[in-house]
Design a protein around this nucleic acid. Structure first.
Lengths: 203, 203, 203, 203
DNA sequence: TATGAATGAGACTTCATTCAT
DNA sequence: AATGAATGAAGTCTCATTCAT
């Protein structure tokens, strides 16, 4: 009992977040119990409550902060691109980089929406939509400029997000495929997907 | 007590499966409790055990049967296609049809793998791989015939599956987009994605 | 596990109520833990939840039913009295009888109001007020008929209730004082308290 | 950290006592948690332990000091009365004054006896009995002098205490009834209650 | 003195599961 | 087959209390 030497609240909070991320990623929010989570960071379960108000609340803020970080990183990195073509290439690069580097965050950000309370759900999905809007913007711009063969931008946006996000499901950083090559492959696929070919019979 | 009029074992079993599907889809396997599931089909929780052995076992057979049905349906429908081009178009059609018609099954077939016991996991993922192998076969065939610009078939297969499966995340049958048009749009995208364009600088 | 021979829901429910009454009486609602309560009736704590929804809910319905029984008994027993004098004598008798026979109920009905949720509190105190109204009615009637020296009926009603209810705090049925004599003593005191004496200088 | 400007140990201790009084009065000793109590006086829970030894100990000394103050005040104020009649009038006045001015203390002094440890219980109830003895003394004196119609002084003492103490349950200082008038009303009631009337059929 | 960090005990509650009827 | 009654394990959460700083 009492305060152990070297205890530091901010560090512990970060450790809890990291441990929770891993556990939720592996077995899901419902399957993560607080006793194990506490043990991961060297605490007893009661002590967790010095850091989180409720398990449910914790999930909400976790997901919200993940989406917020994604958005922040995105805005920072995408500031200086010029045309839609370059923007799309950059989008692919950014999305894949983030979704391979932050695989766990991304996964639970997609999977655990169903474990949120209604209020939390609204907040988190609002951030997701904001991100999607950026992609839609690029597509619309390119379509307006006549660059791409896009039938319905809304569908294309959904398709692109599925395509790119799927990477996090199978890509392993320690595999033979380097991240740079992975990005190049996807940039190519996307380029082709959007390309206006003569053979197109669309519409 | 006693058997109510009109009750039929097979019907009840089907009702349980359907109710479980809905509940797992909405809030996950862990969040589905047997009391509620029983209530869905007009039973008390104890009576469920006349139909299922254990909650965990039940999940395993549920997922396995879903994958098995997918495979069976696939084999039946894909029997008569000739070349890889036609095969790919058919694959897109089949996958989207199944993934929109059986949205709940598909979703939990992807999401609840982590709730399986190791043995169950092996069995179910084996079926998933078998399905993926069919797609890989088509891609390899097309590549061999020089039809498509494919850098790495493994990556392309993963990419295609993400792309197509993603449909189930957002498509609503009651929306303005008909299923036929949806399929056509995706067939186009896939065609373009695989298309060997002159401008391609790949490899 | 499973259903033991001879288990019967209604009996168990009654036993739980009785055991709870005793425990709350002795140490208060907050100090009553469900493990002990369950043990009192030969159950494990989880089994309690086949009978009660929540500890808090349980308290609410317990108090409500106590007050309701008091009211029901009161109405039944007081049906046939004629004038206010007789009514008052009967009221004293009834109140003391009930408050000595049902000492535990009475005590927690008074003490645990503070442990109720706001909604529960409203419901229970409404019943208490209804009971008090009956006493007020008798007092007003007697005052109208000029029988008694009552300055403020509201104050007198409160005073009488304190006086009579207090009995439950100290009276022991196994003491030397018989219940009949106790009642007689209080009837006398009340009679004198209300008596219009010549020496009265009031008003 | 460190001692805030203007803080004073004795003041803080008083503030804690006052805050505890309010909380225990409202929801009971068990329902008062030290975190909230600390917050009431602008402290964190750990700091409380610079003032109190244990929650349980604290309750004991609190109740003991309340009863001691009651006794001290009583002795001081009742020193100079002469006969039993005057003494009784004074007793009523004193009791009501104290029980309306110190409503919270009085209430918890009555209610939280059950939360005391056995040793604490003995100490506090000894003080209560001492107070009751004073009332008994007055009654016996009056009975000896043939002033009053008292069947059993012990019962009458209990009855009087219930009657008078009950005031604290409903009297509001901001109501229409002044304290002086309240006292007068109760003095009258008590006088009548003890009065030897010709109509008395007792004994 | 005050605080932040920790703990252990124990509370309420949920739930899959069993079994006599 | 269906139900009511029970259980044990485990989960979330609260709280008095301790102690290094």
């Amino acid at each position: 009992m009492g305060r152990p030497v070297g205890a530091n609240g901010a560090d512990t909070m970060r450790a809890i977040r990291a441990a929770a991320l891993k556990r939720i990623y592996k077995h899901g929010y419902e399957a993560m119990n607080l006793r194990d989570l506490a043990a991961d960071v060297g605490l007893r379960v009661g002590s967790l409550y010095n850091y989180i108000p409720q398990k449910q609340e914790f999930l909400g803020t976790l997901l919200e902060s993940i989406m917020q970080e994604l958005l922040d990183d995105f805005k920072q990195q995408m500031g200086k691109v010029s045309g839609p073509r370059e923007a799309m290439q950059e989008f692919v690069r950014f999305h894949i980089q983030w979704h391979t580097a932050r695989k766990e965050e991304v996964f639970i950000g997609n999977m655990e929406l169903r474990s949120l309370s209604p209020e939390q759900y609204v907040r988190v999905t609002a951030l997701r939509k904001e991100y999607e809007q950026h992609l839609l913007g690029i597509l619309n711009q390119g379509k307006k400029e006549g660059l791409w063969a896009i039938e319905k931008t809304a569908v294309t946006a959904k398709a692109l997000l599925s395509l790119l996000t799927g990477v996090s499901n199978w890509y392993r950083e320690d595999g033979e495929l380097t991240q740079e090559r992975l990005i190049r492959l996807y940039q190519l696929m996307v380029e082709r997907m959007l390309h206006k070919a003569e053979s197109d019979t669309s519409q």
